[in-house]
Design a protein around this nucleic acid. Sequence first.
DNA 1: CAGTTTTTTCACAAATTTGTGAATAAGATG
DNA 2: CATCTTATTCACAAATTTGTGAAAAAACTG
Lengths: 176, 176
Amino acid sequence: MSETTPSSAPRPDEQAVARFVERFALDLTQGGFPRMAARVFVRVLVSEDGACTAAELAESLGVSAAAVSGAVRYLIRVGLLVREREPGSRRDHYRVRDDMWYEAFARRDEQLGGWEETLRQGVAALGVGTRAGSRLDETRRFFEFLRVELPKLMDRWRAQRDGHGAAPEADSADSP
Amino acid sequence: MSETTPSSAPRPDEQAVARFVERFALDLTQGGFPRMAARVFVRVLVSEDGACTAAELAESLGVSAAAVSGAVRYLIRVGLLVREREPGSRRDHYRVRDDMWYEAFARRDEQLGGWEETLRQGVAALGVGTRAGSRLDETRRFFEFLRVELPKLMDRWRAQRDGHGAAPEADSADSP
DNA sequence: CAGTTTTTTCACAAATTTGTGAATAAGATG
DNA sequence: CATCTTATTCACAAATTTGTGAAAAAACTG
């Protein structure tokens, strides 16, 4: 008898896929994702075209249309999905962005900027001469560092992912 | 008991500090922190020595000892606080780590590793030949990229913070 | 613009999280 | 060892979040 799992054939075991959807969604939840948003996102991720309709999502996840609506609104806002409507169709399609992780980190930068502003007020309240004040200012500088460096990191990711030539190692990581 | 603030030190406006504590804690909450953990953490952050007792935290935040206990357990687990007990005292002190952000990101790496493993299973379930499978594998490679690069980024932060005013690249924006 | 189909909104119920008070355990001191 | 102090645990109440069904709104078709 041949092996029961032709892993290179395009025949996905729907049950295994469903298990994966739930598990990865749970992982993302630990990372701060709203639960339903995580499940919807992973469902789109495992769809063959990388896009689903709301009806498909509601059906395959066994949830209401309202839940899907709320989840996609969140996912679009954080940049992980885009809405598409093909002319001649009434159904929206929700598609994962090709540079979804880049987008997700870009939003993070806005958040970091806000935190920096809060920290500036904290430094002022405590006084720059105090130990607490300088500790707070170091925290602010850390966030500033991230805000500057994360976009560069994402650029390097794009470069590595697109120019998949033949230099997987020995990169000094210092050329914009 | 007779430990008073040095007269030459600036005077922190306690009300402004309290406002900052609540605001920054709220910011951190948006980023996925449990609420009470965020408030406790910021309280320690703004303390002059960078350490507080549970009683001090409960008092200044107006919450129960139980809430503090739960919050510090979380904060210690994610590496943002360390517990200290001075010999001869019964009180624990909770101190912010000097490399707290480094630690926080280090834990993130463990999480990323787990996600990669989940994604491997997803690739197997979908088949490497499918579009969904390769999309999933690209996601896995992205997390792998982060897991490798984030520690390097943190090393660069440490270097910049420890006073390397002259960066290898003309990149610095502020002067300490 | 009437007729469908699809998406969104909203009040409410279910489920989860969060914080408290009281009891218990752990630890130091005389 | 008795006693005091501090930290943790636990059951429960309060608050927040999450998901649903039904109704309304939006969008495309003919």
